[in-house]
Amino acid sequence: MTTATATLVRWLVDPARQEELLGDLEELAGRGPGRLWLDVVSVCVRQSRLVAAVRSPSRLAAVVAVLAAVAMSSTAPALRTVRAVDPAGEFTLEFDGARVVHATLDGAPVPPHRLVQQPGRLVIRGGGDAGNDLDIQLASDGSFYWSARSPRPTTRP
């Protein structure tokens, strides 16, 4: 039996039943991970300490409310905006998970047709030096890298 399954049982199962259930699952561990998980999940659901805790309607309502909140938070989009600066100025990228859904250059929104997204890479058309593309490498850990743009020539009045 893995540590994860044992931890799950310790969290969810009535403490008075844990010894016999963990012992049974230890014996069943040799039947393969799929079958073991079926038994672990069934035990956690049917012998859950939550079952005893939600016998009254008010407690049940509280548990349902908490579960609904957890479920809603897990489906809500996790947007993250990152501000980046190089010698040419500032730009921002707004991520929904690993995908960039919005960008700004010097505070101005970048039209969607100028955002070209590929696996591990984002290109902002015309966002680089001298009207070239700005090529941004996206790492799996959420960080990103690009070649710093040159300072823009100052315009004289």
Binding site: R17, D24, L28, V43, R46
Partner: peptide
């Protein structure tokens, strides 16, 4: 006990029976 009762039921019914159902 849980494991042997489950095994006996599965052998005689030829069906998969979860340990949780047995204990419940």
């Amino acid at each position: 006990y849980g494991v042997t009762i489950q095994a006996e039921l599965e052998r005689e019914t030829d069906e998969t029976i979860s340990l949780g159902a047995v204990y419940a």
